[in-house]
Amino acid sequence: MDLFRKGVHPLEVDYLTTSQNLADTRIKAYVERPASHAERWSDHAPVAAEFDCDTN
C-alpha cells in the first residue's frame, strides 16, 4: 500500500545503536518531535540520547 499517495505521511523514527558498555551509561533517550505537523523538518523523527561518560 502506498501510504504517501493516499495522503498519509508516516513519521519515520531514526534509531541509535551502541555497545553494551555505552548503553549501560545511558541517562535518557527520546524521540524529538515538533510541536505541530506544520513545524516538522522532515518525515524523520530524530532520536537523541544522553550518556554519563564521566571517566573520573
Rank of each mutant, 00 (worst) to 15 (best):
A35Q: 10
D54W: 15
H44V: 05
I27F: 03
Q20T: 05
E39A: 04
V8W: 07
E39L: 07
V47E: 01
V13A: 05
V31P: 00
A38I: 09
V47C: 06
S36C: 02
Y15W: 03
K28H: 01
N56S: 04
M1S: 08
T18G: 06
M1R: 13
D24C: 12
L16T: 06
L11K: 02
F4V: 14
A23M: 08
A23W: 07
K6L: 06
R40Q: 03
G7W: 07
E50C: 08
R5F: 09
Y15M: 03
N21Y: 14
L3V: 09
L11I: 04
T55G: 05
L16I: 00
H9F: 10
Q20P: 08
R5S: 15
S42H: 00
D24R: 15
F51H: 00
T25V: 01
K6P: 06
A38N: 04
G7D: 00
M1C: 06
P34G: 10
R33F: 07
S36E: 11
I27Q: 11
N21C: 10
L22C: 07
E39Y: 05
A38K: 04
E32G: 04
D52T: 11
K28P: 02
L22T: 13
A45D: 09
M1F: 12
Q20Y: 11
Y30N: 03
E50F: 08
R26H: 03
F4I: 15
D24E: 14
A23S: 09
T55Q: 11
L22H: 11
D43S: 12
V31D: 10
A38E: 13
D52S: 08
T18S: 14
K6Q: 02
N56A: 02
A45L: 04
E32A: 04
H9A: 00
S19E: 14
D52P: 00
L11C: 05
L11A: 00
Q20V: 13
R5Y: 13
V13R: 07
E50A: 14
E39S: 10
V13D: 10
E50G: 06
C53W: 05
V13C: 07
G7K: 02
L3I: 01
F4H: 15
R40K: 01
A45H: 05
E39R: 03
H44C: 01
E32R: 09
F4Q: 14
R33I: 02
D43K: 02
A35Y: 10
S19Y: 13
Y30R: 01
T18L: 07
H9K: 15
A29R: 01
T17I: 05
A29C: 08
F4C: 12
W41F: 15
T25H: 08
P46K: 14
